[in-house]
Design a protein around this nucleic acid. Structure first.
Lengths: 201, 201
DNA sequence: ACGTCTCTCTACCAACTGGTAGAGAGACGT
DNA sequence: ACGTCTCTCTACCAGTTGGTAGAGAGACGT
């Protein structure tokens, strides 16, 4: 369900993803999206009857993308918790570099009316449940630091999305986005999560 | 410079803090803020000549509050890195419980026009610099896991603001806000950071 | 040559946005 | 009793918002 950027519909979705993710849903107008695509607002409304419909499509697409990325990363990694975390972090990073506003969008979820957010969240629930169950089992096996697996999963996720979506935190320490710094950040993030999850504390 | 919620001005600031923090600056209108306070929009504009002026005041207040909270927490803690982190986490938690949108506001910083964000950031720069220098020194002393102190500070901060401002991450694992769960979350967060910072990985 | 379908356009609209102008009500010192 | 200052109000404005109505241009099967 990835965005096909050649069709008008696909280009609208891509532009909306970008703008919603970086500036917030409410702050972006249909006119602005249309201008970014190079069409009139009414063309946007031809493809998506209302703004809400566009918002839903953008989020559904983003959630599906994130879900697929994480699922693939888990499947590709060996059955060892720290390696899996590494694999997921790599994959999420790759996705975030390819589509920078993706993680920002994930965060915008919390500003959506609860009913719609819940519907979108459903898509991710199985992933989360599996991650929590996996962490719990690995704790029993002594391969992950003993703690509440639900909250451990949330904390790890918050660290990843937090660092990826909050440029202020990085700018405040003189960090600037470029390939070398990005690789450095990824290395540090993996070490951080490894340390936070390791059983020997 | 804490908000005095009895004066009209103070009540406007408090309402704007709440709304800006939870829904974003652009998405909240002056009418809405006025309605929340129980006055007309023109009363808001009497106290703050423009919306920008109100936004600046809200952010300046929030940044000052956060700065004061963190500074006090650091001074109160013994000179031992994990204890200091504990102390800061406690203090930030307490502030976030008292004024829930505070951390959300911190995140909104990144959506402000760069010039204004930079001006507000200045207030926090000395705090950040000191934290980074401190972490670096403690790494040399072997009391903190060796890594890039700038990024370690950012990752720890991202974890705290991430978990505090992204209710989705917590709701997805069945977490609900109440005093017991909150205390549990704080405990887990402190253990998480302890593990991530500890030298023995 | 014709109708049909897909797509984008121009021209509007009511509601809401941030902001201006200025009146009026009360408290207070003289 | 008077003016002055502080504060909130009603009335209004131009620009922008999401959305409607409907025309027209091109591709395509017949």
């Amino acid at each position: 369900m990835a965005v096909v950027a050649t069709s008008t519909r696909g280009r609208i979705l891509a532009a909306a993803t970008e703008l919603f993710g970086t500036r917030g849903v409410d702050a972006v107008s249909l006119d602005e999206i249309a201008a970014a695509v190079g069409v009139r607002k009414q063309t946007v409304l031809y493809w998506f009857a209302t703004k809400d419909e566009l918002v839903d499509a953008v989020f559904a697409d983003a959630v599906a993308q994130m879900g697929a990325v994480i699922e693939a990363a888990v499947r590709a990694a060996p059955d060892e918790p720290l390696a899996r975390v590494d694999s997921v972090v790599r994959a999420v990073f790759r996705a975030a570099v390819r589509t920078p506003p993706l993680l920002g969008l994930m965060r915008e979820l919390s500003r959506l009316p609860e009913a719609r957010a819940a519907r979108l969240r459903e898509r991710l629930v199985p992933l989360v449940d599996r991650a929590v169950a996996y962490l719990g089992a690995e704790m029993d096996a002594g391969r992950v630091r003993r703690s509440d697996p639900r909250l451990l999963a949330s904390l790890a996720a918050a660290t990843v999305t937090g660092i990826a979506t909050d440029p202020e935190a990085l700018r405040a320490v003189g960090w600037h986005a470029n390939l070398v710094e990005l690789r450095h950040l990824r290395t540090e993030l993996r070490a951080f999560l490894r340390a936070a999850l390791s059983p020997h504390a």
